[in-house]
Design a protein around this nucleic acid. Sequence first.
DNA 1: GTGAAAGCGCTAACAT
DNA 2: ATGTTAGCGCTTTCAC
Lengths: 340, 340
Amino acid sequence: MEERNYTIRDISRLAKVSRGTVDRVIHKRGKVSPEAIEKVTKVLKEINYKPNLLARSLKSHKHNRIAAIIPHYQEDSYWQKCVNGIKKGEEEFKAFGGTINYYTYDKTKADYEQAFDKVLKDKPDAVLVAPIYYRESLPLFRKLEDLDIPYVLINTPIENANYKSFIGQDYWKSGRVAAQLMDLLLPGKGDVLIIHVEEDFENSTHLHRKEEGFRSYFTEKNKNRTIHTFTLHGEPPDFSPLQDAIASARGMFITTSKASVLRRYVENEAIRIVGYDLTPENIEFLKNGKIDMLIHQNPHQQAYDGISFLSELLLYKKEPEYRKLLPIDIVTSENVDCYL
Amino acid sequence: MEERNYTIRDISRLAKVSRGTVDRVIHKRGKVSPEAIEKVTKVLKEINYKPNLLARSLKSHKHNRIAAIIPHYQEDSYWQKCVNGIKKGEEEFKAFGGTINYYTYDKTKADYEQAFDKVLKDKPDAVLVAPIYYRESLPLFRKLEDLDIPYVLINTPIENANYKSFIGQDYWKSGRVAAQLMDLLLPGKGDVLIIHVEEDFENSTHLHRKEEGFRSYFTEKNKNRTIHTFTLHGEPPDFSPLQDAIASARGMFITTSKASVLRRYVENEAIRIVGYDLTPENIEFLKNGKIDMLIHQNPHQQAYDGISFLSELLLYKKEPEYRKLLPIDIVTSENVDCYL
DNA sequence: GTGAAAGCGCTAACAT
DNA sequence: ATGTTAGCGCTTTCAC
C-alpha cells in the first residue's frame, strides 16, 4: 500500500544513469546511447512511473494564453451559457497563471474570418473555437496548424480538420431521440413538421443530421407518419411557407433554439412541440406546458470541457480525448431546474 | 494584457521585507510586527496577488491519502460504476502524488461500521463515503470530525452532518419526473404501483422521498389515478404481496434499480415500467422495449466529483460546493448509449 | 520579529 | 553521450 511515487532521481539511481539522461529518454530528446535507453525504459516500466505533473508545469511556467472564438453572446442565451462555461474554466486556469482572450463574431462569415485573423495575429498558445460556418473554417484551421497552435472545437464538428478534440453532441442521435419523444407525445397517428430556422441552411450540416436522425426513427420503426420539412428565414422568421401545412399538423420538431418563436406563431394550443436548448423563453413555455420537451445541448459543459482540455494540454501536456460526445439530455417541465 | 503573475519575491521587494515575512503574513502565522503586516497587506491588495497553486502544492508535498468507503461492488453494477468514477479521479490524483484506499462493506450495518473503524484507524487525509445507512452514520461522522478529517458524501445525504460536500440527486424531484413520465406513458387513466425493493425500507429516507415526489405530481395536477405502494423483501424478492394488485395495474414505478427483476416477474407485456439506474439488465430491457424509461443517478459522476473535490481540497485548499445536485437524466432506448 | 537558505520534482542549459 | 546544476514559486526551518 505504501506506494510512494517514484521520482526522476529514483529512476536515475535504479537505472544507474544521471537524471538528465532519464529526462532525455522520457522526452525522447535524443543524444542517448541505446543501452541507456534500454536501462531506463526497463525501470520506467517496472515501476510504472507517473511524472509529477505539478512539478513539471511549475518548471515550464510560461504565461499561457488561450483564445476563445465564439459568436456574439450579449443577446443570445445559448452563447451566453457557453461563455459562462468558459468563465468557469478561466477561474481555474488563472490560478495556474493563464489568461483567456475572447474574440466574438457577429453571425456573418466575414466577421468570423476577421475574428480569426485577429487571433492569428495575437498568436495565442491554444484556441477554443465554436465554428458555426463549415466551409469557411477549414482554411482558417490550416493556418493554426501552420503555426502549431493546438485548437479544440465545440458545438460544431468540422470534418478533415486536425483539431485536438471535438466536444459536442451526436446530432443524428439527438434527432432520433426527438422522434421517439414525438412518437410518445402523439400516440397513434398525427402529422409532424420538421422546422429549421436558419439563414444558411445549406451550410449547416448539423441540422441536416438532426433531420436524418428524426426521420430514420420512424422509418426504422415502420411508423407511417406524414413528415414535412420546412426551412424558415428572416428575423423574425417569415412563417408563410408553413401556412398550409400547419392546419393538419399535430406536432412540430424545431431543430434550432427557436421553439418558443414557433409556439407563439401557431394558434393551435394542442400541437405538440419538441425543440432544442434552454433559452429563457423556451423554459417558460416548457414550464407552463406550451412546449412539451426540449433537448439540452449543454453549451456550458462543452465550453468548460474545452477550456479544461486546453489548460491540461498546455500545463501538463496531457492529450485530450479526440471526441467527447455529451449526453443527449431530455428536458421536461419537471427536471428542467436541475439543468440550469 | 501583460498581466504577469506576481510572486512572493515580487511582493517582498515591493514591501521591502523578506520572503519569509510575506509568507507569514499571508498565512497569518504570527511573529510579525504590525508595521510589516501593514506594508505587506497593502502591497497584496494593490497587486491582487494570486498565489501559484502549482508551486504551493509542490512544496507541501505530503503523500495525500483518500479513503473511499462504499458498498461491495463486485456483483453490483451500480456500485461498480461508482468505483469507475473513483478510479478516474484516482488517475488524476495519483499524478499529483496521492493515493486512494478502498474500504468496501457488505450491505449490513455491522460491516459498514467495521469498515469505518478501519478507516478511522488508518487516519487518511480525507474520506469519500457512500453512507447507505442513515441512523448509523452520524456517530461515525462525528469521529471523523473529532480527528479533523474532511469528508464528502455521495449518493445518500445525511442530515446534521458536517460534511464538506454532498453530491447526489434530489430524490423528491426524481420521483416527480418519474410521475410525469408515467403519466405520459399512460394517457388518460390506468392504475399505477409504486414498488420499493429494499430490506431496510424504514431506514431508507431516499426511497420515501421518491414516493412522495411521485405522488405529489398526481395530486398537484389533479389527475386521479389509483396509486398503490408495495415494499418487497428478500433475494430474490418475495412477490406475493403484489399478486392481487398486479392484474389491474397498468404501470409500475420501481424506486430501486430492480426494474428488470419486476419486469421478469410480471407477465403482462403491456405494463409500463419506469425505474432507476442503468444496470446491464435494465439497459437490455430498455433497448428491447420491455422497460420504458429509466432515471439515471449517475454514480460515476458522483464519485468522480467527490474525488475531485477532495483532491482540490487537499492539494490547493479549495473549498468545494456544499451541495452538488446532479441532473435527473431521463433515459430511453434512444439516448441510453450516450450515458454509458 | 526577521531574513537566509534549503528543497519539493522536473527541465534545460551547460559542462565534461 | 552523459552528468551536473540552476531554478520554477512556495513553504519551512534555522540562525540571528
